[in-house]
Amino acid sequence: MLKLAVIPGGICGGCDVALASLGEKLAEILKYYEIVYWPIAVDKKLSNLMNMNHIDVLIYMGAITTEEDAKLAKELSAKARVRVALGTCSVYGGIPGLNALYKPADIIKTISLLVDTKLESSALGLPQPVQHMAYTDVVEPEVLAPGCPPTDKVLDQLTEILLNYAKSGKLEARTMLLGDSESLCNNCPRNPKTTKIAMPGIKRLYEVKLDSNKCFLEQGVLCMGPATRAICTHPCIKFNYPCIGCGGPVEWGSDSGLSMISTLASVLLVDDEKKLLEPGLARELNKIRDVLGTFYKYTLRKSKAYALKNKAGGEG
Protein backbone atom coordinates (compact mmCIF):
# COMPACT_ATOMS: atom_id res chain seq x y z
CA MET A 1 0.00 0.00 0.00
CA LEU A 2 1.19 3.46 -0.89
CA LYS A 3 0.84 6.28 1.55
CA LEU A 4 -1.46 9.13 0.59
CA ALA A 5 -1.67 12.27 2.69
CA VAL A 6 -4.19 15.05 2.10
CA ILE A 7 -3.08 18.29 3.72
CA PRO A 8 -5.45 21.25 3.98
CA GLY A 9 -4.02 24.76 4.16
CA GLY A 10 -6.14 27.90 4.20
CA ILE A 11 -9.18 26.24 2.73
CA CYS A 12 -12.88 26.81 2.28
CA GLY A 13 -13.67 23.11 2.20
CA GLY A 14 -14.64 22.97 -1.44
CA CYS A 15 -11.62 20.87 -2.36
CA ASP A 16 -12.37 18.42 0.46
CA VAL A 17 -15.88 17.99 -0.81
CA ALA A 18 -14.73 17.63 -4.40
CA LEU A 19 -12.18 15.00 -3.45
CA ALA A 20 -14.66 13.13 -1.26
CA SER A 21 -17.18 13.23 -4.10
CA LEU A 22 -14.90 11.04 -6.17
CA GLY A 23 -16.94 8.20 -4.60
CA GLU A 24 -16.32 4.94 -6.41
CA LYS A 25 -13.14 6.26 -7.94
CA LEU A 26 -11.89 7.03 -4.46
CA ALA A 27 -12.59 3.41 -3.55
CA GLU A 28 -10.53 2.39 -6.59
CA ILE A 29 -7.69 4.60 -5.43
CA LEU A 30 -7.91 3.09 -1.96
CA LYS A 31 -7.13 -0.33 -3.42
CA TYR A 32 -3.60 0.96 -3.85
CA TYR A 33 -3.29 3.73 -1.31
CA GLU A 34 -3.69 4.06 2.40
CA ILE A 35 -4.84 7.48 3.53
CA VAL A 36 -2.36 8.39 6.20
CA TYR A 37 -3.80 11.83 6.81
CA TRP A 38 -6.94 13.71 5.74
CA PRO A 39 -8.55 15.57 8.64
CA ILE A 40 -12.12 15.59 7.40
CA ALA A 41 -12.12 12.00 6.20
CA VAL A 42 -9.98 9.81 8.43
CA ASP A 43 -9.01 9.85 12.07
CA LYS A 44 -5.22 10.01 11.82
CA LYS A 45 -2.93 12.10 13.93
CA LEU A 46 -0.69 14.76 12.51
CA SER A 47 2.08 13.72 14.90
CA ASN A 48 2.13 10.26 13.29
CA LEU A 49 2.39 11.84 9.89
CA MET A 50 5.25 14.05 11.02
CA ASN A 51 7.10 10.99 12.22
CA MET A 52 6.78 9.07 8.98
CA ASN A 53 9.91 8.70 6.91
CA HIS A 54 8.21 9.12 3.62
CA ILE A 55 4.88 9.77 2.00
CA ASP A 56 4.18 8.51 -1.52
CA VAL A 57 1.63 11.05 -2.62
CA LEU A 58 0.88 14.32 -0.93
CA ILE A 59 -2.15 16.32 -1.95
CA TYR A 60 -2.05 19.91 -0.78
CA MET A 61 -5.28 21.87 -0.80
CA GLY A 62 -5.81 25.55 -0.11
CA ALA A 63 -3.52 28.53 0.14
CA ILE A 64 -0.71 29.00 2.61
CA THR A 65 -1.89 31.63 5.04
CA THR A 66 -0.24 30.81 8.37
CA GLU A 67 3.18 29.85 9.66
CA GLU A 68 1.71 26.45 10.46
CA ASP A 69 0.59 26.00 6.85
CA ALA A 70 4.01 26.97 5.59
CA LYS A 71 5.82 24.66 7.95
CA LEU A 72 3.64 21.67 7.13
CA ALA A 73 3.82 22.32 3.43
CA LYS A 74 7.61 22.50 3.49
CA GLU A 75 8.38 19.65 5.84
CA LEU A 76 5.85 17.18 4.52
CA SER A 77 6.57 17.97 0.89
CA ALA A 78 10.21 17.14 1.47
CA LYS A 79 9.18 13.60 2.37
CA ALA A 80 6.71 13.17 -0.45
CA ARG A 81 7.58 11.45 -3.73
CA VAL A 82 4.68 12.97 -5.65
CA ARG A 83 3.29 16.34 -4.72
CA VAL A 84 -0.14 17.38 -5.94
CA ALA A 85 -1.39 20.95 -5.72
CA LEU A 86 -5.15 20.49 -5.63
CA GLY A 87 -7.47 23.42 -6.23
CA THR A 88 -6.82 26.90 -7.51
CA CYS A 89 -5.67 28.21 -4.10
CA SER A 90 -2.98 25.60 -3.94
CA VAL A 91 -1.88 26.16 -7.55
CA TYR A 92 -2.33 29.92 -7.99
CA GLY A 93 -3.14 31.30 -4.53
CA GLY A 94 -6.81 31.58 -5.39
CA ILE A 95 -9.01 34.10 -3.65
CA PRO A 96 -6.85 34.10 -0.48
CA GLY A 97 -3.98 35.01 -2.80
CA LEU A 98 -5.54 38.45 -3.26
CA ASN A 99 -4.54 39.02 0.37
CA ALA A 100 -0.93 38.90 -0.73
CA LEU A 101 -1.35 42.57 -1.54
CA TYR A 102 -1.40 43.35 2.16
CA LYS A 103 0.87 42.77 5.10
CA PRO A 104 -0.45 40.02 7.38
CA ALA A 105 -0.48 42.50 10.27
CA ASP A 106 -2.72 44.84 8.28
CA ILE A 107 -5.11 42.02 7.49
CA ILE A 108 -5.33 41.14 11.17
CA LYS A 109 -5.88 44.79 11.99
CA THR A 110 -8.74 44.97 9.50
CA ILE A 111 -10.33 41.82 10.85
CA SER A 112 -9.98 43.18 14.40
CA LEU A 113 -12.30 45.99 13.45
CA LEU A 114 -14.97 43.43 12.63
CA VAL A 115 -14.71 40.92 15.50
CA ASP A 116 -14.51 41.27 19.26
CA THR A 117 -11.83 38.67 19.92
CA LYS A 118 -8.43 40.16 20.40
CA LEU A 119 -6.41 38.74 17.57
CA GLU A 120 -2.95 40.21 17.99
CA SER A 121 -2.13 38.18 21.07
CA SER A 122 -0.43 34.88 20.48
CA ALA A 123 -1.50 33.93 23.95
CA LEU A 124 -4.66 32.54 22.39
CA GLY A 125 -2.50 30.08 20.53
CA LEU A 126 -3.77 31.41 17.26
CA PRO A 127 -1.63 30.55 14.26
CA GLN A 128 0.50 33.43 13.10
CA PRO A 129 -0.38 34.70 9.63
CA VAL A 130 2.18 34.90 6.85
CA GLN A 131 2.12 36.72 3.54
CA HIS A 132 -0.48 34.67 1.73
CA MET A 133 0.86 32.40 -0.96
CA ALA A 134 0.17 29.40 -3.11
CA TYR A 135 1.49 25.94 -2.33
CA THR A 136 3.45 26.31 -5.55
CA ASP A 137 5.35 29.19 -3.97
CA VAL A 138 6.84 26.73 -1.47
CA VAL A 139 7.50 23.68 -3.61
CA GLU A 140 7.36 22.71 -7.25
CA PRO A 141 4.63 20.08 -7.30
CA GLU A 142 4.64 17.31 -9.87
CA VAL A 143 0.89 17.61 -10.43
CA LEU A 144 -1.06 20.86 -10.67
CA ALA A 145 -4.80 20.37 -10.45
CA PRO A 146 -6.54 23.76 -10.56
CA GLY A 147 -10.21 24.50 -10.22
CA CYS A 148 -12.41 26.18 -7.68
CA PRO A 149 -13.41 23.61 -6.78
CA PRO A 150 -11.47 21.07 -8.88
CA THR A 151 -13.74 19.81 -11.61
CA ASP A 152 -14.66 16.29 -12.60
CA LYS A 153 -12.39 16.65 -15.60
CA VAL A 154 -9.41 17.50 -13.42
CA LEU A 155 -10.23 14.91 -10.75
CA ASP A 156 -10.63 12.17 -13.36
CA GLN A 157 -7.21 13.03 -14.74
CA LEU A 158 -5.81 13.04 -11.20
CA THR A 159 -7.34 9.65 -10.46
CA GLU A 160 -5.78 8.29 -13.61
CA ILE A 161 -2.39 9.65 -12.59
CA LEU A 162 -2.64 8.22 -9.08
CA LEU A 163 -3.65 4.79 -10.36
CA ASN A 164 -0.92 4.77 -13.00
CA TYR A 165 1.64 5.82 -10.44
CA ALA A 166 0.54 3.07 -8.10
CA LYS A 167 0.90 0.51 -10.89
CA SER A 168 4.05 1.76 -12.61
CA GLY A 169 5.78 3.86 -9.96
CA LYS A 170 6.31 6.50 -12.61
CA LEU A 171 4.84 9.80 -13.69
CA GLU A 172 4.38 10.80 -17.30
CA ALA A 173 6.08 14.15 -16.94
CA ARG A 174 7.96 16.21 -14.42
CA THR A 175 5.20 18.82 -14.15
CA MET A 176 1.67 18.10 -15.17
CA LEU A 177 -0.95 20.84 -15.39
CA LEU A 178 -4.31 19.14 -15.49
CA GLY A 179 -7.26 20.17 -17.64
CA ASP A 180 -7.02 20.62 -21.41
CA SER A 181 -4.35 22.88 -22.82
CA GLU A 182 -6.77 25.20 -24.55
CA SER A 183 -8.88 28.12 -23.46
CA LEU A 184 -12.59 27.95 -22.76
CA CYS A 185 -13.44 29.58 -26.10
CA ASN A 186 -12.55 26.33 -27.79
CA ASN A 187 -15.73 24.28 -27.60
CA CYS A 188 -17.63 27.14 -26.00
CA PRO A 189 -21.27 25.99 -25.93
CA ARG A 190 -22.33 29.42 -27.16
CA ASN A 191 -20.69 28.60 -30.48
CA PRO A 192 -20.80 32.17 -31.74
CA LYS A 193 -22.06 32.84 -35.23
CA THR A 194 -20.61 36.29 -35.76
CA THR A 195 -17.09 36.78 -36.97
CA LYS A 196 -16.27 39.72 -34.74
CA ILE A 197 -16.55 40.47 -31.05
CA ALA A 198 -17.58 44.09 -30.93
CA MET A 199 -17.91 44.62 -27.21
CA PRO A 200 -20.56 47.32 -26.75
CA GLY A 201 -19.12 48.82 -23.58
CA ILE A 202 -18.74 47.26 -20.16
CA LYS A 203 -21.89 46.12 -18.43
CA ARG A 204 -22.53 44.57 -15.07
CA LEU A 205 -24.64 41.45 -14.93
CA TYR A 206 -27.71 43.23 -13.60
CA GLU A 207 -27.57 45.80 -16.38
CA VAL A 208 -28.15 43.38 -19.20
CA LYS A 209 -30.60 40.66 -20.03
CA LEU A 210 -28.20 37.99 -21.13
CA ASP A 211 -28.85 36.08 -24.30
CA SER A 212 -27.77 32.55 -23.45
CA ASN A 213 -26.68 31.86 -27.01
CA LYS A 214 -24.49 34.89 -27.49
CA CYS A 215 -20.86 35.43 -26.51
CA PHE A 216 -20.69 37.32 -23.20
CA LEU A 217 -18.17 39.80 -24.54
CA GLU A 218 -20.51 40.66 -27.39
CA GLN A 219 -23.09 41.56 -24.77
CA GLY A 220 -20.70 43.81 -22.86
CA VAL A 221 -20.07 41.35 -20.06
CA LEU A 222 -16.52 40.53 -19.15
CA CYS A 223 -15.78 36.82 -19.53
CA MET A 224 -12.36 35.40 -18.67
CA GLY A 225 -13.00 32.45 -20.97
CA PRO A 226 -10.63 33.51 -23.77
CA ALA A 227 -7.62 33.41 -21.44
CA THR A 228 -8.69 30.65 -19.04
CA ARG A 229 -7.58 27.04 -19.22
CA ALA A 230 -10.25 24.54 -20.09
CA ILE A 231 -10.30 22.63 -16.80
CA CYS A 232 -14.06 22.31 -16.92
CA THR A 233 -16.92 21.67 -19.30
CA HIS A 234 -18.28 25.23 -19.14
CA PRO A 235 -20.68 24.81 -16.21
CA CYS A 236 -20.81 28.54 -15.44
CA ILE A 237 -21.24 29.53 -19.06
CA LYS A 238 -23.98 26.96 -19.53
CA PHE A 239 -25.63 28.46 -16.46
CA ASN A 240 -25.54 31.86 -18.22
CA TYR A 241 -22.77 33.14 -15.97
CA PRO A 242 -19.48 34.38 -17.42
CA CYS A 243 -16.18 32.69 -16.67
CA ILE A 244 -14.30 34.40 -13.84
CA GLY A 245 -11.08 32.56 -14.42
CA CYS A 246 -10.73 29.90 -11.70
CA GLY A 247 -8.92 27.63 -14.14
CA GLY A 248 -5.96 29.97 -14.37
CA PRO A 249 -3.90 30.64 -17.48
CA VAL A 250 -3.81 28.27 -20.39
CA GLU A 251 -0.13 27.52 -19.88
CA TRP A 252 1.72 27.13 -16.62
CA GLY A 253 3.73 30.27 -16.05
CA SER A 254 1.78 32.57 -18.31
CA ASP A 255 -0.28 35.48 -17.04
CA SER A 256 -3.97 35.31 -17.89
CA GLY A 257 -4.71 38.70 -16.34
CA LEU A 258 -2.40 40.66 -18.64
CA SER A 259 -3.59 38.62 -21.62
CA MET A 260 -7.19 39.34 -20.83
CA ILE A 261 -6.54 43.05 -20.29
CA SER A 262 -5.03 43.15 -23.74
CA THR A 263 -7.83 41.17 -25.35
CA LEU A 264 -10.47 43.27 -23.66
CA ALA A 265 -8.79 46.49 -24.74
CA SER A 266 -8.80 45.23 -28.30
CA VAL A 267 -12.45 44.32 -28.56
CA LEU A 268 -14.01 46.98 -26.33
CA LEU A 269 -16.05 49.39 -28.43
CA VAL A 270 -13.93 48.39 -31.38
CA ASP A 271 -16.39 49.80 -33.91
CA ASP A 272 -16.91 53.05 -32.08
CA GLU A 273 -13.36 54.01 -31.23
CA LYS A 274 -13.30 56.94 -33.59
CA LYS A 275 -16.73 58.17 -32.70
CA LEU A 276 -15.91 58.30 -29.06
CA LEU A 277 -13.49 60.86 -27.85
CA GLU A 278 -10.99 59.67 -25.35
CA PRO A 279 -13.06 60.59 -22.30
CA GLY A 280 -15.83 58.45 -23.75
CA LEU A 281 -13.54 55.49 -24.05
CA ALA A 282 -12.13 56.20 -20.63
CA ARG A 283 -15.60 56.30 -19.13
CA GLU A 284 -16.19 52.74 -20.25
CA LEU A 285 -12.79 51.62 -19.02
CA ASN A 286 -13.47 53.25 -15.67
CA LYS A 287 -16.33 50.86 -15.19
CA ILE A 288 -13.68 48.34 -14.27
CA ARG A 289 -13.27 49.50 -10.70
CA ASP A 290 -10.95 46.80 -9.48
CA VAL A 291 -8.47 45.66 -12.08
CA LEU A 292 -6.73 43.08 -9.92
CA GLY A 293 -9.97 41.64 -8.56
CA THR A 294 -11.40 41.47 -12.05
CA PHE A 295 -8.51 40.03 -14.02
CA TYR A 296 -6.68 38.20 -11.23
CA LYS A 297 -9.48 36.97 -9.03
CA TYR A 298 -7.78 33.60 -8.66
CA THR A 299 -4.27 34.00 -9.99
CA LEU A 300 -2.83 37.19 -8.53
CA ARG A 301 -0.27 35.48 -6.33
CA LYS A 302 1.42 33.79 -9.29
CA SER A 303 1.09 36.75 -11.65
CA LYS A 304 3.42 39.34 -13.09
CA ALA A 305 1.19 41.91 -11.43
CA TYR A 306 2.15 40.49 -8.04
CA ALA A 307 5.80 40.39 -9.02
CA LEU A 308 5.47 44.05 -9.91
CA LYS A 309 3.93 44.71 -6.52
CA ASN A 310 7.01 43.19 -4.89
CA LYS A 311 9.28 45.20 -7.14
CA ALA A 312 7.47 48.39 -6.27
CA GLY A 313 7.98 48.13 -2.57
CA GLY A 314 7.68 44.65 -1.18
CA GLU A 315 4.78 44.24 1.15
CA GLY A 316 2.67 47.09 2.25
Partner: peptide, 23 residues
Amino acid sequence: DKCNGCRACVTVCPYGAIEIVEG
Protein backbone atom coordinates in the same frame (compact mmCIF):
# COMPACT_ATOMS: atom_id res chain seq x y z
CA ASP B 1 -2.73 23.92 -31.97
CA LYS B 2 -2.87 26.85 -29.58
CA CYS B 3 -5.67 28.82 -31.19
CA ASN B 4 -9.09 28.58 -29.58
CA GLY B 5 -11.10 30.44 -32.18
CA CYS B 6 -12.07 33.21 -29.78
CA ARG B 7 -12.23 35.73 -32.67
CA ALA B 8 -10.46 38.53 -30.81
CA CYS B 9 -7.81 38.73 -33.56
CA VAL B 10 -10.50 38.78 -36.26
CA THR B 11 -12.07 41.69 -34.43
CA VAL B 12 -8.91 43.70 -34.09
CA CYS B 13 -7.49 43.18 -37.57
CA PRO B 14 -7.97 46.42 -39.51
CA TYR B 15 -7.64 44.65 -42.84
CA GLY B 16 -10.03 41.74 -42.50
CA ALA B 17 -7.00 39.51 -43.03
CA ILE B 18 -8.01 36.94 -40.43
CA GLU B 19 -10.92 34.57 -40.66
CA ILE B 20 -12.05 31.64 -38.61
CA VAL B 21 -11.69 28.42 -40.56
CA GLU B 22 -12.79 25.19 -38.92
CA GLY B 23 -12.93 26.87 -35.54
